[in-house]
Design a protein around this nucleic acid. Structure first.
Length: 684
RNA sequence: CGCGAGGUAGAGCAGUGGUAGCUCGUCGGGCUCAUAACCCGAAGGUCGCAGGUUCGAGUCCUGCCCUCGCUACCA
């Protein structure tokens, strides 16, 4: 058994608030894990903080006419407050913009630099003269050298799917200033991951085959099998931690290099405040380090950061990295930019004192093995059918009956029957089962086990029927109610990790002394609540959620996403005047779609066969996200017929169909009257 | 193209060689202490598809299909 635990949750990036995806993937499981460990008396340190560097923040600041500091201060506050109110119990929540973090990150860099771990490389990169900035691949667009698509990105052409490098683009353009970037020499420090393949191979692929989640293990294996490449740890940017080395002027540490080091800085900060020693939490072999992250972060936490720690030499490595998959929302990917999300700070306002409902829903439907879907229907169902109907109702029955029969005093039991013993023994097994599930990161299972205890209580009452026996055998009822009250007390203790607010409310209702509320007590068939003990009056633990409340949430989602799209919709300026001759050179015809099928292995491409009256031809069009084949077959469209043929995914496309765009940015047909015209006619 | 994860009842999941399970939902019944809550019972699955190994396959092997990720700083 490890002496102590260091548990980290992924540092949230401060360019937006926290949403349910973050919670389900990282913060709720990490919080359950740490609450459980504390509950069984372990030494646990739970660490997090805001990740405040990187291009995205400096870009967002530029866009909104603010300084990066204003952006990070704003979101750090929102995130910090919402975590606090939601009951995520970090021991410390720091920020990577603090001095202690600068010092720590620079120390790590200098340490590796002194050991000559890094490789220095010169390379040519595109530089935006206007913005005075080197451009990341994604911030360059231009014409694709392979398919001639005019808006390919610097890393990939979305039209033909080819991987590109930004310098290959024809007529490159900066998406920041719109200007034409120039090539410039620049120098960067690289971490040669390739030299550590053996280390990763031994440590993870051989050492953690059994105990790491298949998705995490598989992902690491995939990276190693494909061969690790050196990665730059510095960037040309003015927002971040200066590179502490000769020639590092104007350069900062790349955000993924400094961010995980934030766990260490946050630990140091905590230690300073509490007057403790931080080092055992990162350097003692008896410490178990666990990183809670989402699947997009696997490579950083399983390969890059461990290599940094390993190269540094003094540090322990993570014992496990239980990365979760992603949570979708109402069938769509959660998207900050499209405003398709349920934001934590808004939830807290709209569902006051219902933190545990969200915690429960996200836990019982956590994306542990594959992506999952969050729907408001399910949220409502879990609340009404499980929390209210099973858990809340059981407690209410017990408390109300105790007041009715005994004025709220726990009755003294007579001889226990087999029925009573069975149920008490069954309860005694549950803490172990829940603990085992949590220790193996099976939080879904843990939430089910907890609910099983409430179910056990309900069944016990239904079988024993105290409300009948009270008329014929009041002595027996005392034993029954005593037993039922033990289950209620057990629930209050075992709920703490998953439903901390409920646990608190319940123990208050039962007027339990927190000192007697140890997890371990439930494992013994013992008295958790003594005869003669006065309990408080009944109040509802959970409230039913009505349909109209859910309807409001669904409306809100739709409204915000529509609003967001209209805001971001650009009205393109009218292009310079063209000549009639130029226009006449375009051959536009009415075409009827007769065959439509999705091109396999692509998201957007649709293969169409169109009838032009005089002939039929094949056209490939990037519209599969907005139309299904059934929507298209039989429809008439305007076709630009004399466009140079182009091959997409091996299919030659002869022409381009013309479509309009609606307010949500999707393609639509432009034909308000829907009257058929004659196929093959020209458009003037 | 490749690599990784997933594809089991209406929904969400468990199940790594031996008669297909759990929760919710649905239907029927019971109870009345309880937030029209609770309890019992039933219906519902050719375990993505096709081959193969085996006495026996959801579980092992091969091929294919679909979803998600690796590829927009989004966990």
């Amino acid at each position: 058994m490890p002496k102590r635990y260091t548990v980290t949750a992924a540092l949230p990036y401060t360019n937006g608030p926290i949403h349910i995806g973050h919670l389900a993937g990282v913060y709720v499981p990490a919080d359950i894990y740490t609450r459980y460990l504390r509950g069984i008396g372990k030494d646990v340190l739970f660490i997090c903080g805001s990740d405040e560097h990187g291009v995205a923040i400096s870009l967002k600041a530029k866009k909104e006419g603010k300084t990066p500091k204003e952006i990070i201060d704003q979101y750090d506050q929102v995130i910090r407050d919402s975590f606090q109110e939601f009951g995520i119990g970090f021991d410390n929540y720091s920020r990577t913009s603090r001095k202690i973090h600068f010092d720590t990150a620079q120390e790590v860099f200098k340490n590796l630099d002194a050991k000559s771990i890094f490789e220095l490389k010169e390379s040519e990169q595109l530089f935006d003269e206007e913005a005075q900035e080197f451009l990341a691949d994604r911030f360059v667009t231009g014409t694709c050298p392979i398919c001639q698509h005019p808006e390919a990105y610097g890393d990939q052409c979305e039209s033909c799917g080819s991987s590109l490098s930004a310098t290959e683009l024809i007529e490159p353009k900066s998406t920041i200033s719109g200007g034409k970037p120039a090539l410039r020499e620049t120098k960067h420090w690289y971490l040669p991951l390739n030299r550590y393949e053996d280390f990763i191979q031994k440590w993870i692929l051989e050492g953690h085959k059994k105990d790491w989640k298949p998705n995490v293990y598989g992902q690491v294996k995939s990276w190693v099998d494909n061969g690790l490449q050196p990665r730059a740890v510095t960037r040309d940017l003015d927002w971040g931690i200066p590179v502490p080395a000769e020639g590092g002027e104007g350069k900062v540490l790349y955000v993924w290099f400094d961010a995980p080091i934030g766990y260490i800085s946050s630990t140091k900060e905590w230690a300073q405040q509490k007057g403790k020693d931080w080092e055992p939490y990162w350097k003692d072999k008896d410490t178990q380090l666990v990183h809670f992250i989402g699947k997009d972060n696997i490579v950083f936490h399983c390969i890059i950061f461990p290599i940094i720690l390993h190269a540094h030499g003094d540090y322990i490595l993570p014992e496990n990295v239980p990365a979760n998959e992603f949570l979708n929302l109402e069938g769509e990917k959660i998207s900050t930019s499209k405003n398709w999300a349920v934001w934590l700070h808004e939830y807290l306002k709209e569902f006051p004192y219902q933190q545990d409902v969200l915690r429960y829903v996200l836990t019982s439907n956590a994306p542990e093995t594959k992506d999952n879907d969050f729907t408001w229907d399910e949220f409502q169902a879990r609340n009404n059918n499980e929390l209210v109907a099973i858990y809340g109702n059981f407690i209410n029955r017990v408390v109300v009956l105790t007041h009715k029969y005994y004025e709220g005093k726990v009755p003294a039991p007579g001889n226990l029957t087999e029925q009573d013993n069975t149920v008490l023994e069954e309860m005694a097994l549950i803490p172990k089962k829940i603990g085992n599930a949590i220790e193996h990161y099976h939080f879904r299972e843990a939430s089910q086990l907890l609910m099983q205890l409430a179910r056990l209580g309900n069944k016990y009452l239904a079988d024993a029927e105290p409300w009948k026996l009270i008329k014929t055998d009041p002595e027996r009822v005392k034993t029954i109610m005593h037993t039922a009250l033990q289950i209620a007390a057990g629930l209050s203790i075992l709920s703490e990790p998953i439903l901390p607010f409920t646990a608190k409310k319940l123990s208050k209702m039962l007027l339990l002394d927190p000192k007697n509320q140890a997890w371990v007590q439930v494992t013994k068939v013992s008295t958790l609540i003594d005869p003669g003990h006065q309990i408080g009056t009944a109040s509802l633990l959970f409230q039913k959620i009505e349909n109209d409340q859910m309807e409001q949430q669904r409306m809100k989602l739709k409204a915000s996403v529509a609003e967001n799209k209209i805001d971001s919709l650009k009205i393109a300026p009218i292009k310079p005047t063209t000549s009639l001759d130029d226009f006449k050179s375009l051959d536009l015809k009415v075409a009827k779609i007769i065959v439509a099928e999705k091109v396999r292995k692509t998201k957007k491409l649709m293969r169409l066969t169109v009838d032009l009256g005089q002939e039929q031809r094949t056209v490939v069009s990037g519209i599969a996200e907005d139309f299904s084949p059934e929507d298209l077959i039989g429809k008439q469209v305007t076709l630009l017929t004399n466009l140079h043929p182009r091959t997409l995914k091996g299919i030659e496309s002869n022409g381009m169909i013309l479509l309009g765009e609606n307010v949500t940015g999707s393609f639509v047909f432009v034909n308000p009257e829907n009257k058929e015209t004659k196929t093959g006619l020209s458009i003037h």
